Amino acid sequence: MSNAMEIVNQARKLDRLSMKDITTQLVEGFIELHGDRLYKDDEAIIGGIGKINGRPVTVIGNQKGASIEENMRRNFGSPHPEGYRKSLRLMKQAEKFNRPIINFINTSGAYCGLEAEERGQGEAIAKNLFEMSRLNVPILSIILGEGGSGGALALALADEVWMMEYSIYSILSPEGFASILWKDSKRSSEAADLMKLTSYDLNELGIVEKVIAEKIENRWINKEDLMKQMKKDIIDKLDSLNTLPRETLLEKRYDRFRKF
Rank of each mutant, 00 (worst) to 15 (best):
M1D: 09
I7Q: 04
N9T: 02
Q10E: 09
R16M: 06
S18C: 06
M19V: 07
D21V: 11
I22N: 08
T23C: 06
Q25S: 08
G29I: 01
E32K: 06
H34G: 01
K40Y: 07
D41H: 14
D42P: 07
D42G: 05
R55Q: 14
P56G: 10
V57K: 13
Q63G: 01
E69D: 09
N71E: 14
N71M: 15
G77F: 03
Y84W: 07
R85A: 08
K86G: 06
K86F: 00
R89T: 05
L90D: 13
M91Y: 06
Q93T: 03
F97N: 11
R99D: 09
R99K: 10
N103P: 08
F104Q: 04
F104P: 06
N106G: 10
L114I: 15
E115K: 13
A116G: 10
E117G: 09
E118D: 07
G120H: 12
G122V: 00
G122H: 00
G122P: 00
E123W: 12
A126M: 03
N128A: 08
F130H: 05
E131W: 07
S133F: 07
I139E: 09
L140N: 13
I143E: 00
L144M: 13
L144I: 06
L144N: 00
E146I: 15
S149F: 03
G151W: 14
L157M: 09
A158W: 12
W162H: 03
M163N: 08
M163Q: 11
I168K: 06
E175V: 13
E175G: 00
F177V: 05
S179C: 04
L181I: 14
L181W: 04
R187I: 01
S188H: 14
S189E: 14
S189T: 14
A191F: 04
D193K: 15
L194K: 13
M195R: 04
K196L: 14
S199K: 04
S199V: 00
Y200Q: 09
N203E: 09
G206K: 03
V208D: 07
V208H: 03
E209T: 14
I212N: 10
E214H: 07
K215T: 02
I216L: 09
I216E: 13
W220K: 05
N222I: 03
D225R: 13
K232N: 09
I235E: 15
K237N: 07
S240R: 09
L241E: 14
P245C: 01
E247S: 07
T248Y: 03
E251D: 14
R253I: 09
Y254G: 03
Y254P: 00
D255T: 01
D255I: 03
F260T: 14
